[in-house]
């Protein structure tokens, strides 16, 4: 026969057991560690050109940078910015743009007289501006604060004859005559004149940089030529930088010239007048 006290003891023991069983399971932790962070987190970075690592920076115990960004004066490169997560895996944020939508890549330039740069998405565009050694740093901004900041990525800009800077203007030459000149302020002097039913002589396009170095871009570039009214005139390419204009009917139209590299343009001219008599 149980006494009153014994029942009370049993009640307490039962309550304790019930509470112990229900209150002690692992799954009542209020935080789920599986929830991925939306923050960008990197412990290293590298710049990649055409699948090849140009420079690699890892930041474990101390900043550790291997490689060098080497450019000539006026040379321009487009590099993919890759990042290393803490588990040792490299990732390119553009591959998962949604996950990094709130993040923005910036490039910090050491000496702007030597190297210039800007970013397009997760690509870094660097241009050798002047001879000398400098550095750039990659920086990732998240809304109102900065996250990853790379160590100094060393750059070396070398001067070499024949190298030119970015185009700031152009001119069109037929024989020994300069038909059109566009200065660095995009002011156009001259026009292309052609008779209806005839064609111009071969016209060659030249570019010049801010140091007035005249050049034609390399083979990896192409000329884009768009005539506004092809009922008045058309163009025929004779070489990469050589073309003729064909007058079709009397009137006046215009042409715009672009220097294309891959899927973007390095130079876009203002409208150049074409007069068909």
């Amino acid at each position: 026969m149980f006494s009153y006290m014994r029942w009370v003891v049993i009640l307490f023991s039962g309550l304790t057991l019930l509470w112990t069983i229900t209150g002690c399971s692992d799954d009542d932790n209020p935080v789920d560690s599986e929830n991925e962070s939306e923050h960008f987190h990197a412990v290293g970075s590298k710049l990649v050109l055409d699948g090849e690592d140009v420079i690699v920076a890892t930041t474990s115990d101390s900043a550790d940078v291997t490689g060098l960004i080497e450019l000539h004066e006026g040379e321009e490169v487009e590099l993919e910015a890759w990042f290393l997560n803490d588990e040792g895996e490299w990732f390119y944020p553009a591959d998962d743009a949604d996950a990094h939508a709130d993040h923005e890549l910036e490039v910090v330039i050491g000496n702007g007289d030597m190297i210039e740069g800007d970013v397009h998405g997760w690509e870094v565009h660097l241009t050798g501006a002047g001879e000398g050694a400098s550095w750039v740093r990659l920086r990732v901004k998240h809304i109102d604060h900065y996250g990853y900041l790379s160590p100094h990525l060393r750059t070396s800009i070398q001067h070499e004859e024949g190298y030119h800077g970015a185009p700031v203007g152009m001119f069109l030459v037929a024989g020994t005559d300069t038909l059109v000149h566009i200065n660095s302020s995009n002011e156009v002097t001259g026009s292309i004149d052609v008779g209806a039913g005839s064609s111009t002589d071969a016209i060659t396009l030249f570019l010049f940089d801010e140091n007035d170095v005249v050049f034609q871009p390399g083979d990896d570039h192409s000329l884009g030529l768009v005539i506004d009214d092809e009922g008045i005139a058309t163009s025929t390419a004779q070489d990469t930088w050589v073309f003729v204009i064909n007058g079709l009917a009397a009137g006046e139209t215009s042409a715009e010239f672009s220097i294309l590299h891959g899927d973007h343009s390095h130079y876009d001219s203002p409208a150049v007048s074409i007069v068909v008599q």
Partner: peptide, 17 residues
């Protein structure tokens, strides 16, 4: 929690009236 079960259960039986 298993330890608690072991430790607390016998108490009810330890104390005769």
């Amino acid at each position: 929690k298993n330890l608690v079960l072991l430790l607390f259960l016998p108490f009810a039986l330890l104390f005769p009236e």
